[in-house]
Design a protein around this nucleic acid. Sequence first.
DNA 1: AGTACCACCTGACGGC
DNA 2: TGCCGTCAGGTGGTAC
Length: 273
Amino acid sequence: MPELPEVEGFARYFAQHALRQPIVRVRVRDERILGVRKDVFSRALRGHAFERVQRHGKHLFADAGLTWLHLHFGMTGDLSYYTSSVNRHASSDDGSRMTDDEPRFARVIFDFANGNHLAFEDMRLFGVVDLTSSPDAYIAEHELGPDPLEITLAQFRAIVAKRRGAIKAFLMSQDVIAGIGNLYADETLFQTGLHPRHPVDRLSDAEVRAVYNAMRRILREVIRVRAKDGDWPARYLTMHREEGERCPKCGGTIQRTVVMSRTTYFCGNHQRL
DNA sequence: AGTACCACCTGACGGC
DNA sequence: TGCCGTCAGGTGGTAC
């Protein structure tokens, strides 16, 4: 699920737990998650400490002095900070795991000098863990667009003016704006009342402003509720992603279709072309 | 430039 | 119980 709001949550979690602790060991449980060679990765980080984190779109960066750690969470990425407990091998479950508390899908684990650990988990291995010289370098190299929470309405209008095609594709293109995925693209359009296939070059000024406002309001609201472990509000499309469901906004029927080869939900009544 | 399709992975779920 | 197809919130490459 990790889109911008979730990654913002990971950034705060990382900052809260894993800063300024010397990294005494780096354990790579599955090399397929790495974008660099394992020995290069470990050597670059061992003995250093993460000093600060930065998020851009769905990407998380942690300053490790000479280099930056870069994390992308794919579809199933997550972070877990935990304390090892030595003598709980005989407890409750089948006891087959080697380390207590180590998450089942931990792919990379940082061991800190204080005895605690930060694990990057990713069941499906679509995420990436690697190194970069700086967030800006990574952003330039991968041609990421601006973060939607960092741009003004005027900048957003300028970006819109350069594009054509379906509004949903526009919102999801990371080189246009970085951070919105399938879920929040649908949510933004649902709350704005626009059909996902509405061409961006046929949006009125008022509609462009409505998209900008909804997108930012949603991202910020979700950051806030998820920070408290809450659910999405019931008025969100996100809580009704199923064909035939009742639209919480107008009572219409939720439709399912495919846009940009992604499953798309929208209200057949208040989101018309 | 925009879109469609495949590939990369693993697990959950429904149907038979 | 088990096998099989389908689906899942992402991205990158290729091909129209």
